[in-house]
Design a protein around this nucleic acid. Structure first.
Length: 258
DNA sequence: ATGGCTTCTCCTAGAAGA
């Protein structure tokens, strides 16, 4: 089965891209971030027509996450239990697979804007909350995938300019330590389980011809729990939709589980 | 050097994204 994460930067603006991409890539589960719409505006009908049911957790203008699935999603949770949050950033659900139930946790991690800012502190608090909650989620659901827009470039090789951007947003030691702490819970970066082309990124700035010059970051991730590791068959970024007209600034990342 | 784009809204300017 295939599971994908994609920050679409407005589902209203990107609905046709999502429909086109899913039609060409009929993955089992698609985790979306940055819907930027409220649940009453969620395009259930258009998705149903191509075979997907969705559970959504939306918000006006900002944030918003959803799980699209070809099979039912059960036991849906919204945001981080035990962490009060004004923003719609997490939706989790369980799908049945031939190997048993699979917990899928989809997150739109806080951006943080600038180290030292209030928003950066919110990012750190949010990451602490996520970590505590995930410990329990993993205990309850040993087969778990955490995926989404992490807004963290975990290592220097995940940035187009690790020296020039050292200790700037997405690159700070404290953010990277949080990423390592997630791995410490018993999660594994599916992308790094395979040989990948150098300068593999998942996001490119709209400005400065970012995509054309491959000035990007790898900030969209798929982490799998230890029991799933033997089942991971592939993980890759699909740059194709980043080349479409009016693209999202993020590309979809897909993991294949055997 | 800066910002260079795209999205949204209390809508045509400003905030936010990353």
């Amino acid at each position: 089965m295939k599971i994908t994460t994609w920050n679409v930067n407005s589902l209203t603006a990107r609905l046709q891209h999502v429909l086109d991409w899913l039609t060409a890539n009929p993955v089992d589960v698609l985790a979306l971030q940055e819907l930027k719409l409220t649940d009453d505006k969620f395009p259930h009908d258009a998705l149903r027509e191509i075979g997907y049911e969705a559970v959504a957790f939306g918000q006006k203008t900002y944030n918003g996450v959803a799980l699209l699935s070809r099979s039912p999603v059960a036991n849906v949770a919204r945001n981080i239990e035990g962490f009060a949050d004004e923003s719609a950033r997490v939706i989790a659900g369980t799908v049945e697979t031939p190997n048993g139930p699979l917990r899928v946790v989809n997150g739109y991690f806080v951006n943080g804007q600038e180290p030292g800012s209030e928003k950066f502190q919110y990012k750190l608090n949010w990451l602490n909350g996520l970590q505590s909650w995930l410990r329990n989620e993993l205990a309850a659901h040993p087969r778990l995938v955490l995926l989404g827009d992490f807004n963290i470039a975990p290592e220097d090789r995940d940035s187009y300019d690790p020296v020039g951007l050292a200790e700037t947003i997405h690159h700070t030691t404290v953010e990277r330590d949080h990423f390592k702490a997630l791995l410490g819970l018993g999660l594994h970066d599916a992308f790094r389980m395979f040989d990948q082309p150098p300068k593999s990124f998942s996001w490119w700035d709209y400005r400065m011809l970012g995509y054309q010059k491959n000035r990007g970051l790898r900030i969209d991730h798929i982490l799998v729990s230890t029991p799933l590791v033997p089942q991971v068959k592939a993980c890759s970024v699909d740059r194709v939709p980043r080349k479409w007209t009016k693209p999202s600034d993020h590309a979809p990342v897909t993991v294949e589980l055997g």
